Computed example of a mutant assay.
Amino acid sequence: MAGKPKLHYFNGRGRMESIRWLLAAAGVEFEEKFIKTKEDLQRMRNDPSFIYQQVPMVEIDGMKLVQTRAILNYIADKHNLYGKDIKERALIDMYTEGMADLNELVAYYPFLPSGEQEASLTQIKEKAKNRYFPAFEKVLKSHGQDYLVGNKLSKADILLVELLYNVEELDPSAITSFPLLKALKNRISSLPTVKKFLQPGSPRKPYTDKKSVEEMKKTFA
């Protein structure tokens, strides 16, 4: 029997957090091996199986996978969170690529110099409220179903709810004008596996504060 997936990353959100969300929502327990020093990172880079010499990296089913989207797709496919056919997968990918674009801005925000954060926050709010959130609200309204694709839970729903939480940390009013997104957030958050992940003490990582930023910069410089 295969062991638990092992996640290699620093002890923070970054590009691993979506992977944590997806595994948790699928009810998969996982282990984490944190990269705390430059030496830890160099040891990984010296491993010939560590392709591209970068993280996040996930050991799963006898493989060492890198590249966030490849990891997410494998987990989604394995746990029946990737649609029923090629058309549904195309829609799921289309939606999640848009989410990733916005989530990237949110993830980089804490790492920006203080003088650049105000402009970045303005951009995040503008894109969230005027481009991405209206698009996903429209998708839900167009078919009147509980989920984005095929009326069935997929990685698109899970990653959208992660994004909603992330944006709300910067702008608590972000989804006030989007009733279907609020309903989706409540629906997904009420799933037993997700509800557990949202509780204190879970593997979910807290907001990236200044101390965490400095620690990560020292390791990955």
Rank of each mutant, 00 (worst) to 15 (best):
H143Q: 11
Y74D: 03
M94S: 15
A183D: 13
D101E: 11
K36T: 11
V139M: 06
V28A: 04
H8V: 15
G12D: 04
P206H: 07
D209N: 05
K125D: 10
Y207K: 14
L153W: 02
K218I: 09
L163P: 01
D101R: 04
F133S: 02
E104S: 15
D171M: 09
L198W: 07
G144S: 04
T68H: 04
L102F: 10
L22V: 05
R45T: 08
A2R: 13
Q53D: 14
R15P: 08
F34S: 11
F220Q: 11
A2F: 13
L72C: 10
S49A: 14
Q145M: 13
E214D: 13
A100K: 12
L7P: 04
Q117T: 11
V194P: 00
E168H: 06
F197K: 00
D93G: 08
E137C: 01
K211R: 10
Y132N: 08
P203Y: 05
V28L: 05
Y147P: 02
V55G: 05
T96N: 12
Y109S: 12
I92F: 10
P192D: 02
I86S: 15
P200E: 07
V106H: 08
L140E: 00
F197N: 00
Y109H: 15
A174P: 07
L91A: 12
K36I: 07
A119M: 13
T208I: 04
K33T: 15
F30R: 05
I75G: 01
F136H: 04
L105M: 15
